[in-house]
Every structure is written in structure tokens, then in C-alpha cells.
Nucleic acid binder design. Structure first.
Lengths: 210, 210
DNA sequence: GAATAAGTTGAGGTGTTCCTCAAGTTGGGC
DNA sequence: GCCCAACTTGAGGAACACCTCAACTTATTC
């Protein structure tokens, strides 16, 4: 009764348990080894054979598609916090700080946002949602005359690329370095700091990734 | 007579030819495949067996140590140009533009500067020389009151990390993007743009790499 | 033009990760 | 308690990159 909409198939109890163990293991391993961590490590950590992993998740992307959105959800909370900030510039800053804090805590997220928008549909879907939020935060700060007018969504993507590397490189030796870089960068994003772009810099930004 | 100071050993003619072919091939392959390119590719491009490559260069680092400084030399010319610029700020900008132009033209250099000061002694030696030049350029711009006072050499290293990723990511799809990011960043580095750092940002910079 | 030291070769061993599949195990309905 | 579909297992094949070394080739010297 009522399992008409259950869709796929009910899993056997042991299979369900293994699936969960795999998801937990994947979350951990991906978080600190990054998105390219060997799947064998995940299977081992889950106490399960590699065959079982492939049984449940035929590709690495399938596994990521289950694990990533969970982390990506944190991003929505951050967007909300940012919009809740009364001052639009502060909101923009809160958003960036939150975003990079997440990235610095989770290598998977860092990789995902970098390599990224090139992943499984579920994932890029979540990214797209994040993009919309970001766009609103940017627009609000610009309308208030606080954020320089020529800053675009594509520039945010580029900034994410830049910071992802800084985070990767300093995570162990000097965590927090990214806050310093961000401070400098933010000072260049204030409306009153804006100078003409360097000659040769593209002024029309072809959207970086679809 | 007079080969007392010749040091190592005179190479046989064919060996010398092969060595040259290897260096040329390495320069090309490293430049567009990056520092981790398979050594087999280099041997093949040189028209020589993999054994011969290992014969001449026992490790990847040994090969890099011959090829990199050659490219790194371009950096010295850029430093010179920068110091020749009458305006200290312009000099600073010229230096950064030159540096990143090099990086965007040569994946090897990009990787080397990123991963980098962790390489063979010859290489890190050359880096150290570059560091000294950079330090002078920074100091000059700061003494003129143009570059914000809290910008350090370690921040330059961090900036290089950041830009290396931007360059890697946009090289094919949108080259020149790095100029846009640099424009924004520079606007944050002007003395008059300086605001207090974000809370949590390290204000004393432990030198990033030895 | 022989002799030989110098140099070259590439098949093959090592290690890593990917992924598959035939054989074995087990949950759960009867 | 039996049975079978569902699930698990891990050895092993494929791909790639590393590096070595015994057998071969060649430049040079006399």
C-alpha cells in the first residue's frame, strides 16, 4: 500500500547498510583527499569490497552526485545569511567568506567548484541554483553603489578558481592565508577603488562555463 | 690540452646530439603539457628511446634543471624592465604583467612557480634570484607610497598561486581572463585602496616556502 | 680496419588505478 | 528450514607511467 511511488526498487537490508557505509566513507575520503581520491580507498574505509562499490555506484560521478549536493546545501544557507545582512556590501563579503570557508574545509567542494560545472547533471544543477543566489547578492551590492559595476558572475567564477588554488596550497602550512588574499581582493572590488582595466583585459566576459 | 677545467666528461658526438634533441623536445612538451608530462612522450618526440633519456637525465628533476632556468631567465629581463620604468607603481604593474604573460605562455613555468620552490636546487636558486628582484620592485613601489604597505613577498607568492590556476583554467576557453583578474587585484593593492584586513586574516606572514 | 669504451635500445618488472565477472554468500518470503 | 533472487567478493585483465638492464650498435682511437 502506498509504495506505488517508491520508484526504483526496495533495497535488501544488507545492501542498504552497505550503501550508507559507502556514502559516509565517500564523504570523508572525498573531503580530505579531494574529488580524485581512489575509489578503492573509499571501499576499504567502508569495509566493503570494490565490487560492491561499483555495484551501488557504477561511476565516480554517480557517487559524487549523491554526496556533493549534501555539502552544496550548506552554500544555500550562506546565500541566505548574505541576503539577510542589512548592508549589501557586508552581505557580499559574508557570502564570499562563507563560500571560501566551505572550500577550505572540504577538498571535495574545492575541487568540485574548480573543475566543475562540468560534472553530473545533478551537481551542475545545484551549482546553477547557487549561481542564481550569487547573482542576486552581486546585483544588490552593485545597486547600492558599493560593489564596482563591472564585476560579473563570470568574475566570481574566476575568483573561485583563484582562491581554490590558494586554499589547496596553504591548507596545511598556513591556513587562513586565503582571508588575507580575499581582503586585498575585496579592496579592489569596492566601487570607489575601480580603475580602468589593464589594456588587453577582456571587458566583455563570455560566460566561463555553461 | 686545456681541458683540465672541462670538468665532467667530453660527450661522444652522437650522445651530444641526442642530448640536445632531448632538451629541445623537453622544452616543447613541458611547455604545453606541463611539468608532469610523461617522460616517454619527450623521448618519442626526440626520436630516441626512453633508456637514452634516463641515460642523460636520471630523474625528471635533472631534466627540468636544464630546461627551466632557460625560461626563468626571461623573468630577469622582466625585472629589469620593471626597474627601468620611471614610475614605481608602473614598474610593479609591468613586472606582474610580464610574469603572468610568461606563465600563460608556458605551462611548465606555470607549474614550476606553483609547485615550486620545492624543486631541484638549481631551480630554486633561480627562483631565489627572482625573489630578490621582486622584493626590490615591491619595496620601490611602497616607498613611493603607491603600493599598500602591508603587501609582502609572501603575498606575491600567493598571488602567483592564484593566477596560475586562473591561467590554467582559462588558457583555452578565454585567454586574457587573467588580465581582468589582475586589474581588479591591482585596484586592491593601491595604497589608497587599503582597508583593514578581514578578521581572521593572518597579519604576520610566515614565509610561505623556504 | 680492429678493438673497445661509450652509448643506445626496448622488452619487461614494478606500481597504481581503473573496472568486470564468475563464483560464492546471504536475506527474507514461503 | 529451504530456496532463490539479491547481493558481495576479490582475483585479474587493461591502461598507463615509472625505471632498469642485458644485449646490441657505433664513434673513436691507434
Amino acid at each position: 500500500m502506498g509504495d506505488m511511488a517508491a520508484g526504483p526498487k526496495p533495497l535488501r537490508s544488507d545492501a542498504a547498510r552497505n550503501r550508507d557505509k559507502l556514502l559516509v566513507a565517500a564523504t570523508e575520503i572525498f573531503a580530505d583527499r579531494g574529488i580524485d581520491a581512489p575509489l578503492e580507498h573509499i571501499a576499504r574505509r567502508a569495509g566493503v569490497s570494490i565490487g560492491t562499490l561499483y555495484n551501488h555506484f557504477p561511476t565516480r560521478e554517480a557517487l559524487l552526485a549523491e554526496v556533493l549536493p549534501q555539502q552544496l546545501a550548506a552554500l544555500e544557507r550562506i546565500s541566505a545569511d548574505a541576503m539577510a545582512e542589512p548592508d549589501p556590501w557586508d552581505g557580499f563579503v559574508v557570502f564570499l567568506e562563507g563560500l571560501f570557508t566551505l572550500q577550505s574545509q572540504d577538498q571535495m567542494l574545492n575541487d568540485a567548484l574548480t573543475q566543475g560545472f562540468t560534472l553530473a547533471t545533478d551537481v551542475s544543477q545545484a551549482c546553477r541554483q547557487g549561481s542564481l543566489d550569487a547573482e542576486r547578492i552581486i546585483a544588490r551590492a552593485q545597486e547600492a553603489g558599493r560593489l564596482r559595476a563591472d564585476f560579473t558572475m563570470a568574475d566570481l567564477v574566476t575568483l573561485i578558481w583563484a582562491m581554490s588554488q590558494v586554499i589547496r596550497e596553504t591548507m596545511d602550512s598556513a591556513p587562513g592565508t586565503w582571508r588575507r588574499v580575499l581582503s586585498f581582493f575585496l579592496d579592489g572590488l569596492r566601487a570607489e577603488a575601480a580603475h580602468p582595466l589593464l589594456p588587453g583585459a577582456p571587458s566583455v566576459v563570455t560566460d566561463n562555463r555553461p
